Computed example of a mutant assay.
Amino acid sequence: MESEVKKTSIILPALNARLFVDKISSHLSAQNIDLQRVIVIDSSSQDDSPMIWKDQGFRFHNISRQSFDHGGTRNLGARLASEQGAEILVFMTQDAIPADDRWLEELTAPIVSGQAVATFARQLPRPEASLLEQFSRYFNYPGHSRRRTEADIPELGVKAFFFSNVCSAVLADVFWEVGGFPEHIIMNEDMTLAAKLLRAGYAIEYVAGAQVVHSHDYTLAQQFRRNFDVGAFFAGAGPELAGAKVGGEGLRFVREQLRYVLRHRRADLIPLLIAEAAAKFSAFQLGKRHHLLPLPLKKKLSMHSYHWEQKEKK
């Protein structure tokens, strides 16, 4: 396994990451990863993190804040990694903290063994996460692994394409074979990549044994903006995502979340649960119809307003 890990490169987009550098560095050192194989793509941070990344030995690449693109920035990192001879590309976010020192070995094992060409890790809630956010992590990232192929799409619907770049790995040759991540889309570049892999006949695997601590307690306004962007993404989703039934999965989430809250004797959270569900649903529907809205309004409703600014400049 050690010889295979040496052929692995990690691509890590970053912005003002001062709080996370030391934690990431210590976990990677425990995995015997040469930090020169960790490619930090920094969007012109304004804190002292660029200096720290460099001082600690990471391979550092700066881009302008305006040029950041979910898919394009990661493709840039993947190209730099491929120039180094990387055979496995690992994509992480700066706030994904490995839960133990086996996460990378667990994450890449199905790729090394040939069982899958892409994998993604389990996300655990932060200790301070709210009960609703805890449920979200446990619902989307259960304690059992699962391999998926195109044959699973009729049964799983949109869940067949679920894939997260918070912590994922892809066989480099296959990544480039399917064209890498889509560029200039508002979000879900990871889901689109998973869909392309499945449609090409490959298997992807959710690896419950590879664990990172990562969660967000969004406000209602943030929930709305994020789901507006999700709707905008699905409005332009290509044929790879045919069969992605979104509505039924949303209803199942709310139903199970209600049971989780009642099981923890927190009926006081039901009004917030309902408000969040309403915000997500209305925002998603509005996002799907974003073409009816003026550009200035889209920027106000969106969590990723820079996406619309980039489209405006074009």
Rank of each mutant, 00 (worst) to 15 (best):
R122N: 07
L28H: 11
S49E: 11
M187N: 12
Y260R: 04
G243Q: 13
L107Y: 10
A30Y: 08
G85I: 07
D217W: 11
I153T: 02
L241D: 05
S82W: 12
L107W: 09
Y141R: 04
A160N: 02
L193E: 02
P125K: 13
A195R: 00
A283W: 11
G243Y: 13
G238D: 14
K288T: 14
Y260K: 03
L131K: 05
S25F: 08
S82H: 08
A277E: 00
N140H: 15
E177W: 10
F233S: 01
V112A: 06
Y141L: 03
I63H: 00
V254S: 09
Q285A: 12
D22F: 12
D47V: 02
T192S: 09
V90Q: 04
F234N: 01
A81M: 08
D42Q: 08
S302T: 10
E256Q: 14
N165V: 10
D101H: 15
V207C: 02
V212E: 00
D95H: 08
Y306C: 07
K159M: 11
R148E: 01
V166T: 13
N165I: 04
E150Q: 12
Q46W: 08
N62G: 09
Q134S: 10
Y206Q: 02
F233C: 06
I39V: 13
W53C: 00
D34A: 01
I153D: 03
K159R: 14
V254A: 11
A172T: 03
P182A: 01
R102S: 15
N227Y: 14
D22N: 11
I33L: 02
P271D: 03
D42A: 02
K280T: 13
T8V: 14
E150K: 13
R146Y: 13
L251M: 12
K159S: 07
N75I: 02
L35I: 08
D34Q: 03
R199M: 00
E155Y: 12
E240S: 07
M51V: 14
A242Y: 07
K23L: 08
L193K: 03
I274R: 14
P50Y: 14
L15R: 15
M1L: 06
V5D: 00
I153Q: 06
K23M: 03
F181P: 01
A30W: 05
A99V: 09
R65F: 15
Q84F: 10
M191A: 07
D190F: 04
L220E: 00
E4T: 02
L251D: 07
W53R: 01
S45C: 08
D22T: 02
E276T: 12
S145F: 09
I111D: 00
E205R: 08
W308H: 10
S29E: 08
D95I: 14
R266P: 08
M191K: 04
A200T: 04
T73L: 00
V178C: 06
A78G: 01
A232D: 05
A30N: 06
V170Y: 12
S136D: 03
D69P: 07
E276S: 15
D152C: 00
F234T: 09
K313G: 10
L301H: 06
L293T: 11
A160W: 05
T93Y: 09
H27N: 05
V213C: 11
A195S: 05
G85S: 08
F58I: 01
G248L: 10
R137N: 14
V5F: 05
E155L: 12
V112S: 04
T108W: 06
Q56H: 13
R146H: 05
K311S: 10
S49W: 15
A160P: 01
L301C: 06
S130H: 13
A267Y: 14
T93D: 10
R259Q: 13
D101Q: 13
